[in-house]
Amino acid sequence: MSLLSIESVTKRFGGLTAVDDVSFTLDAGEIVGLLGPNGSGKTTLINLVSGNLPVSSGRITLAGATLTGRRPDQIARAGVARTFQLVRILPSLTLSENVMIPAVFGAKAHWGAEALAVAQDALKQVGLDDRADMSASRLSYIDQKRLELARALAAEPQVLLLDEWLAGLNPSELAEGIALIRGLTDSGITILMVEHIMEAVRALCPRVIVMNSGQLIADEATETALTDPQVIAAYLGESVDA
């Protein structure tokens, strides 16, 4: 039984079709990579699922409930959490407050000690729990990324959308990051991750979805996809971090 289902989703910006009639489904507990060259529509697709942008046509459902046409806050409460390609933290709040927000305003509406506990757990998962009362504006880039992931986790989501969460990390941080995400999948969460780092995709995702100029060109096992001539052609001229 599929959890997240994307049905013939299209997004047009004026004359440009950024996402063109894309369909696929994710099963509960799956971790799937979303690949494609720059400008192929991956981030736009993430934005359509999270409600940041309205779809032009098509339908997105989560466990049978329609997400399309709903506002981002409604979609978040329905169980979708995300990180952003350009990391977005809340600089005037503490780490603990940053992470607490989706717990407070999410479906479960925790408050007080309960919300703090959820925030503390999420901070612990990413290894920031010792700095819970620090202002988020003082974090380094990698810690900001960690914080953003902790915030998404504190939503206790069914589906987690990661938009190049591993980009910009050095090799040892990358290994740490991969281990972190693998730890999440063990808890049964469903993940769709946009990623350029093939090492991470190979290590984490048994299945990938590949887009090119807005269209879905492959939806198959990762090993098959990486030798698929169509996929290789799409990436020609693009540097692939293999």
Partner: peptide, 20 residues
């Protein structure tokens, strides 16, 4: 808390479940 989040970043606020 919701107002403070909105003041910092409305996109994050919406994606955290705050009806803007």
């Amino acid at each position: 808390l919701a107002l403070r989040v909105i003041g910092d970043d409305e996109v994050v606020a919406a994606h955290a479940g705050i009806p803007l």
